[in-house]
Amino acid sequence: KTVEVNGVKYDFDNPEQAREMAERIAKSLGLQVRLEGDTFKIE
């Protein structure tokens, strides 16, 4: 899975870890996480 923030992509081998990281980043920035294919987009 991939986490994308402001056009910057971070790859994770563990999908659960990617989801947790995406949620943590989104919460700290006051944004939403949206799953698009294999990418968690933070917008």
Rank of each mutant, 00 (worst) to 15 (best):
E23S: 06
F12H: 03
N14K: 08
G37P: 02
G30C: 12
E16Y: 08
G30V: 02
A18T: 01
P15C: 15
E20L: 11
F40Y: 15
G30F: 03
E20Y: 09
L29H: 06
D11Q: 15
L29P: 02
N6K: 06
I25Q: 03
V3L: 06
F12G: 00
K27S: 12
D13Q: 11
D11I: 15
G30N: 07
D11S: 15
N14I: 07
A26P: 00
A18Q: 00
R34G: 04
G7Q: 03
Q17K: 12
V3C: 11
S28Q: 15
E36M: 05
Q17V: 11
Q32F: 11
D13N: 09
D13F: 07
V8C: 15
L31Q: 06
I42H: 01
R24Y: 12
T2Y: 15
R24Q: 12
F40W: 15
T2Q: 09
E23V: 09
A18W: 05
R34Q: 07
E16M: 10
V33Y: 13
L29C: 12
Q17C: 15
V33P: 04
L35T: 06
R19Y: 10
L35I: 13
T2S: 14
M21E: 12
E36P: 00
I42C: 04
I25S: 02
Y10R: 04
M21Q: 07
E43K: 07
E16G: 08
E4H: 07
K41L: 12
R24K: 13
S28E: 15
Y10F: 12
R34F: 10
K9W: 06
S28N: 10
I25L: 10
L35S: 05
L35N: 05
R19S: 06
V33S: 03
I42V: 12
D11E: 15
F12M: 04
L31D: 01
D11W: 15
Y10I: 09
Y10G: 00
G37Y: 06
T39G: 06
R19P: 00
K41D: 02
F40H: 03
G30L: 03
V8Y: 10
D13T: 11
Y10C: 14
Q17S: 11
N6E: 07
V8W: 08
K41H: 12
K1I: 13
V8M: 11
V3N: 00
D11P: 11
G30M: 04
R19K: 11
L29D: 03
R19I: 07
P15W: 12
D13L: 09
I42E: 02
G37W: 04
A26K: 01
I42D: 01
K41E: 02
A26T: 01
R19E: 06
Q32P: 11
M21P: 00
K1E: 04
V8S: 07
N14G: 06
I25V: 10
D11N: 14
T39E: 04
R24H: 11
K27Q: 13
A26Y: 02
A26L: 03
E43R: 06
R24W: 13
E20Q: 11
E36Q: 07
V5E: 01
G37F: 06
N14Y: 08
D38M: 06
F40C: 04
M21Y: 15
G37I: 04
G30I: 00
T39C: 15
T39A: 06
L31H: 06
E23P: 00
R24P: 00
P15F: 14
T39V: 14
S28A: 15
G37N: 09
E23A: 07
F40R: 00
K9T: 11
R24C: 13
T39Y: 05
L31N: 01
V5Q: 02
S28P: 03
E16R: 08
R19T: 04
K9L: 10
G37S: 04
M21F: 15
N6W: 13
K27P: 00
K9S: 09
A22Q: 00
T39R: 04
T2A: 12
G7K: 05
Q32G: 10
I42T: 02
T2P: 02
E16F: 08
E36A: 05
K1G: 10
A26V: 02
R34H: 11
F12L: 05
D13E: 12
E16N: 09
K1S: 13
M21D: 03
L29S: 04
D38I: 04
V8P: 00
D13Y: 06
A22D: 00
E4K: 06
I25K: 00
I42S: 01
G7E: 03
E4R: 05
D38E: 08
E23K: 06
R34M: 08
T2C: 14
M21N: 06
V5T: 02
L35K: 06
I25R: 00
S28T: 12
E20C: 14
G30Y: 03
G37K: 06
K41I: 15
G30K: 05
E4Q: 09
F40G: 01
Q17M: 13
Q32N: 11
V5G: 01
F40P: 02
L31G: 13
N6M: 14
Q32E: 12
L29G: 03
E36W: 06
Q17D: 14
L31E: 05
K9M: 10
A18S: 01
Y10D: 01
D38P: 04
V3T: 01
E23R: 07
K41C: 13
E4L: 13
E4A: 06
G30S: 04
N14S: 14
N6P: 01
Y10W: 09
G7P: 01
Q17L: 13
D11R: 15
D38C: 14
Q17N: 08
T39Q: 04
I42W: 01
T2H: 14
Y10A: 03
K27R: 11
Q32T: 14
E43N: 09
N14C: 12
E20H: 08
K9E: 05
A18E: 00
A26C: 08
P15M: 13
Q32I: 15
V3Y: 03
V33M: 08
E4T: 08
R24M: 13
E23G: 05
L31V: 13
A18P: 00
R34K: 12
F40M: 05
A18R: 01
T2L: 07
R24G: 06
R24E: 11
F40V: 02
T39F: 05
G37Q: 06
P15H: 13
N14A: 07
K27F: 10
T2W: 13
K1L: 11
E20A: 11
V3R: 00
D11F: 15
E16T: 09
Y10N: 02
S28G: 08
P15Y: 14
V33K: 00
D38Y: 06
E43Y: 14
A22M: 03
V33C: 15
T39L: 08
L35P: 04
E43L: 11
P15S: 11
I42M: 05
D13M: 09
G7R: 03
G37H: 07
V33D: 01
D13H: 09
Q17E: 15
V3G: 01
F40A: 02
K9G: 04
I42A: 02
E43I: 14
L35V: 13
D38N: 12
G7S: 04
S28M: 14
M21V: 13
E43H: 09
E36V: 11
E43W: 10
V8I: 13
A26S: 06
R34Y: 11
D11V: 15
Q17R: 11
R19F: 10
K1R: 13
A22F: 05
R19W: 12
K1D: 03
K27W: 09
E4N: 07
F40T: 01
E43F: 13
E36G: 00
F12N: 00
N6C: 15
I25W: 12
Q32R: 10
V5L: 11
D11H: 15
E16C: 11
M21G: 02
E4G: 02
A26N: 02
E20G: 05
K1C: 15
E20K: 11
K41T: 07
V8K: 12
D38F: 07
A22N: 00
E4P: 01
E43D: 12
I42N: 01
E23W: 09
L29N: 03
T2M: 09
V33G: 03
E36I: 08
K1A: 14
G7H: 05
G7F: 04
P15D: 09
F12Q: 01
K9R: 15
V8G: 03
K9Y: 09
Q32D: 09
R24I: 11
E36K: 03
F12Y: 08
N6T: 02
V8A: 07
V3K: 01
Q17T: 12
E20V: 09
E43Q: 11
F12D: 00
I25F: 07
L35G: 02
V33T: 04
V33R: 00
L35Q: 09
E20T: 08
A18F: 04
V3F: 04
A26R: 01
P15Q: 09
E36D: 13
E36H: 07
F12K: 01
R24A: 13
V3I: 10
Q32S: 14
R34A: 06
K41S: 04
E43A: 09
D38V: 05
V5C: 14
N6L: 14
G7C: 12
S28I: 14
E20F: 07
F12S: 02
R34S: 08
Q17H: 12
N6Y: 13
T2F: 15
T39M: 09
P15I: 13
I42L: 12
K41N: 03
A18I: 03
V33N: 02
T2E: 04
G37C: 12
Q17F: 09
